[in-house]
Amino acid sequence: MRSGRRTWLGLMLSGATLLVAGTARADASVPHQLQAQLVGKLASFDRNFQTRAAGTARILVVRKAGDAESARVADNLARALVALRQVGGMPTQVDVEAFPGAPGLAERCRAGKIAIVFFSTGLEGEMAAAGAALAGADILTVGTTASDASRGAVVAFDLEEGRAKIVVNLARARAQNVSFKAELLKLSRIVG
């Protein structure tokens, strides 16, 4: 086959793949297992976590309804959190649910005494509303990609210099009664 035809064939195949492929969204570049381990550790640096959790670290992983990728990430995060057995020094209870809307999430967290909400992918557009609904609530919210911290999560993760970086939204933390110790903030990137 002449090289010119091969070139066109390659370009057509590439174009076809582009047409059928959906959006990948920003990949959670920090491996999920490492994210879960970090959540398990940083809860120990939240002065209010012990009081909030009251003996059991209840973690709610929320996914976007009807989004298979969001469900996959949520399941991976939940599995990694369960494997930790303890978060902030307390036994964990992990649930995965579809995002019920911002007001619904606030009610679910209040009723279920949720200590940590972990947003899966696909909920970037909901985070601001969720953050507003959770203002005044005593809860730690976590996003899987760095920009989630700017969108409304208290904590998110980025990959910087080939290592995980914790991103903290201090304003959101104050609004949700999360008080991180200086030792954690020194290791983090602060936004908001």
């Binding site: 370009l11 793949t17 582009l18 492929a21 959906g22 959006t23 990949d27 996959r72």
Partner: peptide, 15 residues
């Protein structure tokens, strides 16, 4: 371009 087909298949197209 990074894409996704379903929950388990990711694609990379590079030119």
């Amino acid at each position: 371009h990074r894409g996704r087909l379903g929950s388990r298949l990711t694609t990379l197209v590079r030119a």
